[in-house]
């Protein structure tokens, strides 16, 4: 049971973000980098599947050379192989169509080499761009079924049962493998990498593929930080004495029926 996990290197931001002067990116001078919370869960799910069904976890990213940090993080969590679709310096901000195209090329290349994947995991949406589509595009290009927003995943005999929130409860999907799943935080509680894991990962080098950048129809012009409406909260009071004022408000809003 071989799994591919696709992740993206993104800055781990604080309460306020600052943009670079050219307004093309977040100023990451003070920031560390990570994979998004959804993708951490994807790695965890893949590692659990490999632990249970014996198989390899390959983690893939598209980015500049330093994105190997995120691949190694996944390795330290228990992934086995790394693929870096290495872009030129300063050219890692690919749109969803180009990104999906490069991933599809890489998967086909691996298949041609005899390394096919049974399960392909993506984050439901990337922490930074939030495009909601790379995993879906990859699935369609490969002709594979895809379930999105997955928060529960069980594998058995070439078959997967996926759960996601919907209709006030859970929707259940059944698909045959190979299949693509875009997962969400809450799928599991991802482990932290162990020291032995870190040590195993630290000297490993990723398989590097130079991707071809295809067309993309969504062209970023610039980023901007929204003007947040600064409210001056009305202070109802201090401590429990202020509680009746809350009751007043709830009453005004018609919530004390």
């Amino acid at each position: 049971m071989n799994t591919l996990v696709c992740v993206k290197r993104v800055p781990a931001t604080g309460a306020r973000v600052t943009l670079t002067p050219d307004e093309q990116a977040i100023d990451a001078r003070y920031l560390s980098f990570a994979v998004g919370p959804h993708e951490e869960c994807a790695i965890e799910a893949a590692v659990q599947i490999a632990e249970e069904y014996d198989g390899d976890v390959t983690v893939l990213t598209l980015g500049e050379a330093d994105a190997v940090e995120q691949l190694r993080y996944a390795l330290a969590m228990g992934a086995h192989e790394m693929i870096l679709l290495e872009t030129e310096d300063g050219d890692s901000d690919w749109g969803p169509m180009a990104t999906a195209g490069a991933i599809v090329d890489a998967i086909r290349q691996k298949e041609a080499e005899g390394d096919a994947f049974d399960i392909l995991l993506f984050g439901n949406d990337s922490a930074d761009a939030g495009g909601f589509q790379v995993g879906v595009r990859v699935a369609y290009a490969l002709g594979l079924p895809v379930v999105t927003g997955v928060k529960g995943l069980e594998i058995s005999d070439g078959h997967a049962t996926a759960r996601r929130e919907g209709g006030g409860g859970w929707e259940v999907y059944e698909v045959d493998l190979p299949a693509v799943f875009t997962v969400k935080e809450g799928l599991n509680l991802p482990r932290y990498p162990s020291i032995p894991g870190k040590l195993r990962a630290r000297r490993r080098k990723p398989e590097t593929i130079a991707p071809n950048r295809g067309e993309d129809g969504l062209e970023k012009i610039r980023l901007k930080v929204p003007e947040t409406e600064k409210k001056q909260a009305q202070i109802l009071g201090h401590g429990p004495e202020a509680a009746p004022k809350v009751a007043d408000i709830l009453e005004e809003l018609g919530l004390l029926s």
Binding site: K231, A233, Q234, L236, H238, G239, P240, E241, A242, V246
Partner: peptide, 24 residues
């Protein structure tokens, strides 16, 4: 969060929340 809030009570939530329940 106060900069995005309409109302605020300054105090220990462990005292304030039960008091609101009581008032409700």
């Amino acid at each position: 969060i106060l900069a995005q809030a309409d109302y605020a009570i300054i105090g220990d939530l462990h005292e304030v929340v039960p008091a609101i329940s009581e008032a409700v």
